[in-house]
């Protein structure tokens, strides 16, 4: 998931990524491995679990003078390599500090 905040002029104000997947090593060192041939056991698992919601709270501090932000949340799946993406949901929101 990538959450991006941009100013009205398109300038990026902040970008945060969250990665949800099991992470394995070969149990001989602490380097994560890709590929079944090298993996031996999961070391950490941040994947989406059945019946459990994955919640995040992400904060962007706006620079002086910026009162509005366009926020985009992109949720996608990567298979095989990070360049092979399958978009799942894209949500955009305009956020203002003025009533």
């Amino acid at each position: 998931m990538v959450v991006t905040a941009k100013a009205a002029d398109g300038k990026e104000l902040g970008k945060v990524e969250r990665h949800y997947h099991p992470q394995a090593t070969n149990c001989r060192d602490f380097k994560m491995k890709y590929g079944a041939q090298w993996k031996v056991a999961n070391l950490r698992d941040t994947s989406l679990q059945p019946g459990q919601a994955k919640k995040e709270t992400i904060e962007f501090e706006l620079p002086e003078g910026v009162r509005n932000a366009d926020v985009t949340i992109e949720l996608f799946y990567e298979a095989s390599n990070p360049d092979n993406k399958y978009p799942i949901h894209t949500v955009t929101r305009k956020v203002s500090l003025d009533k």
Binding site: F60, L62, I73
Partner: peptide, 21 residues
């Protein structure tokens, strides 16, 4: 004062297994 934008996300799944796997 610090101007701030807060984004709260909640992802849920109906799958019967972890994603990805």
């Amino acid at each position: 004062y610090v101007p701030k934008v807060v984004v709260s996300t909640k992802i849920t799944t109906t799958a019967g297994h972890r994603i990805p796997d």
